[in-house]
């Protein structure tokens, strides 16, 4: 393991940023979000949860797909610009890191999404342990260890130092490049102490031991037809806050925009909570907010596991718990539906 004093981090950032697009949790107008680092950026590694998740780095809110030019009856296609830049994302928490594996299942299996795949291949993930988990965290319920965040490189901040440990080939490669900034750290006790502290906190978090046993694919119809959805979804505004801050929500829309000389087709995040999500010429298969609400949670807790060996499409980051305007969230769903045996 190696370590670097926190005050030397800006130098490390600018070194990494020379060869890579460096993404860090950056403070802007009161909020912290992952954004591309530049020398004026205010980095905030202490923020437990960025407002949006880290998925932007691989699955940006809007992604240009292809540009068409239309000339009379003829159409020509411009080759898309692929994301070839090398990227480093720094300060990813264990839950967000786990979400990348879930997004891989969605985007790389079957018809792989080339933009996503390429960004994944070009990106080195440096994770950071959560020193101060909060009340809404329930990563433990999904077997995620916030004290050992994995990724290509794991880091811990203890007593003014960032402790650095590469886990993968990509991580070792980055470590070799930046090793001059670090001092060797033979004593793991600081990190180990922090790890046991974190685990102790997590053990007493109210949502850590939430019971997911009810959510299995064979209960699909029973859960779907539960009369409780109505009351659960009653206050839902049908906004997209939960989906847009969620690290695992992956639904998107494909839209065209008429530019000055052509048509830009782009892919952008969409939300199953929006009223027009499934609306088409012949009608709407989910006309009520209850159905849309049910879809979102059924997808995370039943449909996704059914298609992916029982893996839930939720990482317990707790963003929806904290960000929903009307305080509805996946935990309330799990608790309410999970209680009937």
């Amino acid at each position: 393991m190696m370590k670097i004093s926190l005050k030397n981090l800006p130098e490390l950032y600018s070194f990494i940023a020379k060869k890579n697009d460096l993404y860090l949790p950056i403070f802007k107008a009161g909020q912290v979000d992952f954004a591309k680092w530049d020398k004026d950026a205010i980095v905030d590694l202490n923020k437990l949860k960025t407002t949006k998740s880290a998925k932007d780095v691989f699955f940006p809110q809007s992604q240009d797909l292809v540009r068409f030019e239309v000339d009379g009856k003829k159409i020509s296609i411009d080759e898309p610009i692929m994301p070839t830049n090398k990227q480093v994302i720094f300060g990813v928490k264990a839950c967000d890191n786990r979400s990348f594996e879930l997004l891989d299942m969605a985007f790389v299996e079957d018809y792989p999404d080339t933009f996503y795949e390429m960004r994944r291949a070009n990106t080195t993930i440096v994770t950071l342990a959560c020193a101060k988990p909060d009340e809404a965290c329930f990563c433990k319920a999904y077997g995620i260890d916030a004290a050992d965040p994995k990724g290509d490189v794991s880091t811990w901040i203890v007593d003014g130092y960032l402790h650095w440990m590469p886990n993968t080939d990509k991580g070792i490669e980055l470590t070799t490049e930046v090793k001059d900034f670090f001092e060797l750290d033979m004593d793991n006790s600081a990190v180990e102490n922090q790890q046991s502290e974190i685990r102790a906190i997590i053990d007493r978090l109210p949502y850590s031991n939430i019971d997911l046993s009810k959510f299995t694919p064979d209960k699909l119809l029973e859960l779907f037809n539960s009369p409780k959805w109505k009351a659960l979804s009653e206050a839902c505004l049908g906004c997209g806050t939960c989906t847009f801050v969620c690290p695992t929500c992956q639904c998107y829309d494909v839209k065209d925009f008429k530019t000055k000389t052509g048509v830009q087709r782009f892919k952008c995040w969409d939300s199953c909570m929006f009223a027009d999500f499934t609306k088409c010429a012949h009608g709407n298969t989910r006309p009520s907010q209850m159905q849309r609400y049910r879809q979102r949670f059924m997808h995370k807790l039943v449909y996704f596991p059914s298609n992916h060996d029982g893996v839930y499409s939720c990482v317990g980051c707790g963003r929806c718990v904290q960000k929903c305007p009307q305080m509805l969230n996946i935990v309330k769903v799990i608790k309410t539906l999970g209680e009937d045996k």
């Binding site: 107008a29 407002t51 997209g240 989906t243 847009f244 801050v245 939300s271 929006f274």
Partner: peptide, 8 residues
């Protein structure tokens, strides 16, 4: 520029 168009 922080707006994520969630429509909340």
């Amino acid at each position: 520029s922080k707006c994520i168009r969630c429509n909340a």
